[in-house]
Simulated assay, not measured.
Amino acid sequence: MQPWIHLATAKTPQGGDLRLLRRGTEYSIRLEGGNELMNSRLSGSEEALATLSFEHLTDRAAPRVLIGGLGMGFTLRAAQEVAPPTAQITVAEIVPELVSWAQGPMAPVFGECLADPRVSVETQDVAVLIRAARGAYDAILLDVDNGPDGLTRAGNDGLYAVEGLNAARRALANGGILAIWSAHPDTAFTKRLSQCGFDAQVHAVRASRAKRGSRHTIWIARAV
């Protein structure tokens, strides 16, 4: 088996390290200590985050979509495939190096997706954009950290607490969609969505495109 090659390192907002590694055509982003956050072979659930969301946006001629977290671009590219030419897609990524990696060592994964005129990238905390918005988005897709059970940044917890969910609801247009990716199910979080004025559906989806292997959780929550 080929060894992993260390390509680059970035600092998280907490001060820890994110490490980009490659083995052949496979890429991995890991926390310092080895905990893997993303792998280029496991894109199924992140893609489902986009496709499930856009199923609820068919009545919007020019949907305005905010994606929290660039990662390896799985959610973005899936959104681009199903979004109409009139869509506006904003990606918020708090770690600037991830954007640089997309145009550098991970260019074979990203291709030309960041050159899409429908796409703009904001190198800042998605929570800042959400708090500043009022009815600005038809959908907010959060692929941030590990979901409600965060790993890399304590501040991410605020996205999933009552205050953060209320901010997301204010940032959405009438009937807008809040979609959230998580590595694990969370019954308490489903109840919290309801308490904050969302009608939530919970989906268990495969981590990979194959119909086998582990599952991740996606909430598709409509503001009511």
Results as ranks from 00 to 15, higher is better:
residue 77 R to C: 12
residue 99 V to C: 14
residue 116 D to P: 05
residue 99 V to L: 15
residue 78 A to W: 01
residue 97 E to A: 13
residue 104 G to Q: 15
residue 114 L to Q: 09
residue 98 L to S: 01
residue 101 W to V: 04
residue 74 F to Q: 01
residue 87 A to D: 05
residue 74 F to W: 11
residue 85 P to D: 13
residue 69 G to S: 06
residue 100 S to V: 15
residue 106 M to A: 07
residue 96 P to I: 09
residue 94 I to R: 05
residue 89 I to S: 03
residue 85 P to A: 14
residue 78 A to G: 04
residue 106 M to T: 00
residue 109 V to C: 11
residue 97 E to C: 06
residue 107 A to F: 10
residue 64 R to Y: 10
residue 81 E to P: 05
residue 98 L to Q: 04
residue 112 E to M: 14
residue 97 E to M: 10
residue 74 F to C: 01
residue 93 E to S: 07
residue 72 M to C: 07
residue 114 L to N: 07
residue 64 R to H: 12
residue 101 W to S: 04
residue 114 L to T: 02
residue 74 F to L: 06
residue 96 P to F: 13
residue 92 A to S: 12
residue 107 A to G: 11
residue 77 R to N: 10
residue 103 Q to N: 13
residue 85 P to Q: 11
residue 65 V to W: 08
residue 89 I to V: 14
residue 93 E to D: 12
residue 105 P to W: 11
residue 72 M to L: 14
residue 75 T to D: 07
residue 67 I to F: 07
residue 88 Q to H: 14
residue 117 P to S: 05
residue 105 P to I: 06
residue 113 C to W: 02
residue 100 S to Q: 15
residue 105 P to Y: 11
residue 100 S to H: 15
residue 114 L to F: 13
residue 63 P to S: 02
residue 87 A to M: 09
residue 110 F to P: 00
residue 118 R to D: 03
residue 90 T to F: 12
residue 96 P to S: 09
residue 84 P to R: 00
residue 108 P to V: 08
residue 69 G to E: 03
residue 103 Q to T: 12
residue 76 L to N: 00
residue 83 A to F: 09
residue 95 V to D: 08
residue 106 M to C: 11
residue 74 F to D: 04
residue 65 V to E: 06
residue 103 Q to M: 15
residue 78 A to N: 01
residue 102 A to K: 08
residue 86 T to Q: 15
residue 76 L to S: 01
residue 77 R to H: 06
residue 84 P to W: 09
residue 93 E to Y: 10
residue 116 D to I: 06
residue 117 P to W: 08
residue 72 M to S: 02
residue 64 R to G: 05
residue 90 T to G: 10
residue 102 A to H: 08
residue 80 Q to H: 09
residue 83 A to V: 06
residue 80 Q to P: 05
residue 117 P to G: 00
residue 102 A to V: 10
residue 73 G to S: 08
residue 75 T to H: 01
residue 119 V to G: 03
residue 117 P to E: 04
residue 64 R to L: 10
residue 108 P to S: 08
residue 68 G to W: 00
residue 88 Q to N: 12
residue 71 G to I: 04
